[in-house]
């Protein structure tokens, strides 16, 4: 009896059932809080024709960008797709379909998808190309457009800690889209830095309850930094004052 134990032993097991032409929602912002090993597993499996839903598409050799060279992505729904030369090439050549979506709308699409809300009205994008073909309705004298929710066949998530029941805690701004994506997957797979025993996580501090999570695996992470910006060390501290 597995009960509520969500832990799986291998990345192959974690991504079992992913097949061509599925929709995959991925957590992460830039390269921060991305499920880097789950992405590598999709690359290894060679699954094709995927629709990816993610704020960004990684860089050329890291993150979701690794799915580009073998043309595994058919379509991407994202808010910002700079920083990636191969992406730009495929998009300009018409090999890759891109649906640019405002960041807040993207987050809300996931939240709504996970919460059983099929669509919502928002002021974001009114009068812009984003509104093309969408229903406009006026509330209290202001126009809003109708945006539809997103549900994924899979959601791939990176969290900091999980217990065996799939309760999740995220760390700092690596949280970003992850808790929303976690709710919106038919199968939600989470990779974490540490798996703890049930009862070790304070129930008051859990960000994502295990009910949303189907599989948990422990991984090791590169955590690449996209823009390494620093200030000089305080000279007094440096001197040990």
């Amino acid at each position: 009896m597995a009960g509520f134990d969500k832990v799986v032993a291998s990345y192959a097991e974690a991504m079992a059932g992913l097949t061509d032409n599925m929709t995959v929602i991925a957590g992460g912002f830039g390269l921060c809080g991305i499920p880097e090993n789950l992405i590598s597993e999709i690359e290894r499996k060679g699954t094709k024709g995927l629709t990816l839903v993610s704020n960004n598409c990684g860089v050329d050799d890291f993150g979701l960008g690794v799915l580009l060279p073998n043309r595994q992505i058919k379509k991407i729904i994202a808010s910002y797709v700079g920083e990636n030369a191969e992406f730009e090439r495929q998009m300009m050549a018409g090999e890759l379909e891109v649906e640019l979506t405002p960041q807040g709308t993207l987050a809300e699409k996931m939240r709504a998808g996970g919460a059983g809300i099929p669509a919502f009205f928002t002021a974001t994008g009114v009068g812009t190309p984003v509104a093309d073909g969408k229903e406009v309705r006026s509330f209290n004298g202001r126009d809003y457009i109708l945006e539809e929710a997103i549900v994924g066949d899979f959601a791939i998530i990176k969290a900091w800690k999980a217990d065996r029941y799939g309760n999740l805690v995220f760390r700092k701004t690596a949280r970003n889209f992850n808790p929303l994506a976690a709710t919106a997957g038919k199968i939600t797979v989470v990779e974490v830095e540490e798996i703890v025993e049930v009862g070790e996580l304070d129930p008051d501090q859990i960000h994502t309850p295990g009910i949303y999570v189907n599989r948990v695996i422990q991984g090791s992470f590169e955590k690449r930094i996209e823009q390494r910006t620093t200030r000089p060390a305080d000279p007094l501290i440096a001197k040990g004052a």
């Binding site: 912002f29 830039g30 390269l31 921060c32 809080g33 900091w160 760390r171 700092k172 701004t173 690596a174 955590k223 690449r224 930094i225 996209e226 823009q227 390494r228 910006t229 620093t230 200030r231 000089p232 060390a233 305080d234």
Partner: peptide
């Protein structure tokens, strides 16, 4: 503000993807 070399944390960035 931006971190010192010692304070850099890959899990802590701003919307420009800079470490903060």
């Amino acid at each position: 503000q931006f971190p010192t070399e010692d304070e850099i944390d890959a899990d802590l960035i701003n919307a420009g993807k800079q470490t903060v």
